[in-house]
Design a protein around this nucleic acid. Sequence first.
DNA 1: CAGTATCCTGCAGGATACTG
DNA 2: CAGTATCCTGCAGGATACTG
Lengths: 127, 127
Amino acid sequence: MSDDPAFDVFARGCASRVTLEHITGRWGGLTLSALYEGSFRFNELRRRVDGVSEKMLAQTLHALERDGLVHREAQPVNPPRVDYRLTPLGRDVAERLVGLIALVEGRMPEVVAAREAYDSERAAVTG
Amino acid sequence: MSDDPAFDVFARGCASRVTLEHITGRWGGLTLSALYEGSFRFNELRRRVDGVSEKMLAQTLHALERDGLVHREAQPVNPPRVDYRLTPLGRDVAERLVGLIALVEGRMPEVVAAREAYDSERAAVTG
DNA sequence: CAGTATCCTGCAGGATACTG
DNA sequence: CAGTATCCTGCAGGATACTG
């Protein structure tokens, strides 16, 4: 469709688009960002990522582990102890994600102002 | 819950988390990345963002416009002509997004290798 | 603790038809 | 062309109970 080498991310079924969805998905980005701050156990992560269910955290961690972004280390003790941390690749990805989050957070005043302008303009038309 | 100023992104209901979801959502990221390459009309965008429906593209563009990331310019001609392009803020955000995509694309060999390792390990246990 | 298994529901999002 | 309106469905993802 295009000779631009980056264009194929827009295609459905593109392998990198799947990975991107794991990274930027509802829980993926939050989980990677949380792990950017250190190594955490399953329930520690659950507490850090507000609103995530057991099921979704497990599913998210599996996907990220499979993609080579997260390393899972299970110690054979009782009760079990499992630690999750970023791989080098995961760290590089998380770094960009954290940068994006910081950018958005820093510019929320602009976003809020834009919303107010947008809403008041619509209100003027409708009302 | 934490004194880390960046920690509140993890909280549900946090305003920046909503914007982040628009940016990284299923169609938001793809749309911003497409617009990073220039200005496009509605149906041009539809063709560029493979798989997006009219409804979802309209909805995505509304959200991004409201957040001040995309500028919509409607010319009062018949048939109508509407062009979408990034605002300065949208450009800054899209730049990071494109960087993230490039990073992931460039390191897909690692991802693929990790998947194979993960799958063969599981197959060894199950089979 | 670190998960898995099951059941269930809301809503994201697709398909289709229509409009200024 | 650039959308909106309606209807409908699959599945993301929550709640709950259970397990090694």
